[in-house]
Design a protein around this nucleic acid. Structure first.
Length: 206
DNA sequence: CGTTCGATGCACT
DNA sequence: GTGCATCGAACGT
């Protein structure tokens, strides 16, 4: 007889803290999206912090707008938006309500529902093109959203309860590294990207 | 290896 | 009308 330990879901208090602390502590936790068919899940290995109206790269930089409203709201909720017209990017809202900030999830090491991930990621590929290796399924924020089936429907969802949650991880990962955030045109001086050094699922570039 | 560039939708000015 | 918190195909070396 086998007994599985019940997964512990991260509490709201976890998110209601300084964003850089939340970013660091999210590494190694497990992002889970359960649909009617299957659970897809992966260990977080790369994140970026976006902190306040004074951060020019944060969506709160222009002040409150329709789109960035979730950033000002309750911590522990999802902030999902469409980028470049084709990719959904998922954040976890941080800091107490009224303090607009979030952590962008940039890469996962897939652990569950890998075949479903591969199906969701499969583009129109010619015959003979090899399938994506596991480490590439959730490498990059747009890719992981697609692999987990995350879209605008998940915007504002409570990450502490329900079908989209972040659970406590168990296995320790390698040493962490900090560096400038990727792909932004402003605010790249702040070293607010945190990732597992040398992990194969971490997105490249610089 | 490396770099460039087009796809694509919508929030914001 | 402008500009993205991207991705991957298509080049060049």
């Amino acid at each position: 007889m086998t007994v599985e330990a019940a997964a512990v879901v991260l509490s709201r208090d976890f998110y209601a803290r300084p964003t850089l602390d939340v970013a660091r502590d999210l590494i190694g936790q497990v992002l889970v999206h359960a649909t009617a068919r299957t659970r897809t899940a992966g260990v977080i290995v790369e994140v970026e912090a976006y902190i306040g109206e004074s951060d020019p790269a944060c969506h709160a930089a222009p002040g409150p707008t329709t789109r960035n409203q979730p950033l000002y709201g309750e911590p522990g909720r999802a902030y999902v938006y469409l980028n470049y017209g084709m990719h959904y990017l998922m954040n976890a809202v941080t800091e107490p309500a009224g303090s607009p900030a979030a952590v962008l999830i940039r890469a996962l090491e897939p652990v569950e529902g890998i075949e479903l991930m591969r199906r969701r990621r499969s583009r129109l590929r010619r015959a003979g093109v090899p399938p994506l290796p596991d480490r590439a399924l959730c490498r990059g924020p747009g890719n992981l959203a697609r692999a987990l089936g995350i879209s605008l429907c998940q915007n504002r969802r409570d990450l502490t309860v329900g079908s989209l949650v972040i659970e406590e991880g168990t296995a320790p990962l390698g040493p962490l590294a900090w560096g400038p955030r990727i792909g932004i045109r402003v605010g790249s001086d702040r070293p607010w990207r945190c990732y597992v050094a040398g992990h194969p699922a971490v997105s490249r570039r610089a």
